[in-house]
């Protein structure tokens, strides 16, 4: 059996130690593991073919998503399913799915230009995000018209009511039905940090399971803001890094081995 990981090297280049551990475990279990960093390859598009029993799309990069789109079109099996990944990738569709399912989340908006949010600012600050962004790139808080005027996102501006006084250090990670909590301070590099394992309320575990079902995601993370009115889902991330989840490498390896047996 062969499993192919479509990864993101990042800048500066790195490899998440949990996944380095996973690759070793899979190989010791007799699985042929391919690890690809598409941005470092020269890929001939005329010859693409399915060359693995299972692909794991663990990259937010547009090149990886293009590659996955082709593999999906050819009938490859991909974790997470491509449709689920694309719904989470676009924050506009993700926010719609959360709202439709009554998942507690900040009120979310979209506009072709930030200036269109001027009227909404009378109700409080907004947090602006690129609609296909990741790792916190381009995220900013807008409190005034001047903040909006200096925001020049091309194409789509996604915005949420900014929960000013909420605690924002809780990450939720899902490996299938298994749900874990990790606390780590939010920053542009927080995805690189370990954090500390944290207990989760039944409410948050239930929210995570529902989001998995609604999006069709199996491996995902949630950023949770804990406001006075309860937890709010501020972001849904497909295939996160699981840093801080106890025994993550073994749990992920078991999950991949089960998925391979279903191929």
């Amino acid at each position: 059996m062969k499993i192919s990981f479509i990864m993101e090297r990042g800048d500066p280049p790195r490899l998440n130690p949990i996944f380095a551990d996973v690759f070793g475990r899979l190989e010791r279990a007799g699985v042929n593991v391919a690890v690809r960093f598409p941005e470092e390859e020269l890929i001939r598009l005329n010859d693409l073919a399915i060359d693995a029993d299972l692909y794991c799309l663990k990259s937010d990069g547009e090149m990886a998503l293009s590659l996955a789109t082709v593999l999906d079109g050819m009938g490859a099996r991909i974790l997470n399913p491509l449709d689920a990944t694309l719904l989470a990738k676009d924050k506009v569709t993700a926010a719609y799915l959360l709202a439709r399912a009554d998942i507690p989340a900040p009120i979310a908006f979209a506009a072709p230009a930030a200036a269109e949010f001027q009227a909404r600012l009378t109700r409080g600050p907004l947090i602006l995000k690129p609609h296909r962004g990741y790792h916190g790139a381009g995220v900013r808080v807008a409190r005034s018209g001047a903040d909006l005027a200096s925001t020049n996102y091309p194409g789509v501006v996604f915005a949420q009511d900014y929960l000013e006084r909420a605690r924002v250090d809780l990450k939720v990670y899902a490996i299938g039905e298994q749900i874990f909590g990790v606390r780590k301070a939010f920053s542009r590099e927080s995805f690189l940090h370990e954090g500390e394992s944290a207990p989760l309320s039944n409410e948050i575990i239930g929210i995570a399971r529902r989001i998995g079902a609604i999006f069709g995601l199996e491996l995902f993370g949630l950023d949770i803001a804990e406001a006075g009115c309860g937890p709010r889902v501020v972001d849904v991330n497909y295939f996160p890094g699981y840093r801080g989840v106890p025994d993550a490498a073994r749990l992920l390896t078991d999950y991949f081995l089960r998925a391979l047996r279903c191929c």
Binding site: P38, E39, E41, M63, S66, V70
Partner: peptide
């Protein structure tokens, strides 16, 4: 995808 469907396309590549 077009190439995989058997339609002739010029030799094409992607890179980072």
């Amino acid at each position: 995808l077009i190439s995989a469907a058997g339609v002739p396309v010029p030799p094409s590549w992607t890179a980072g």
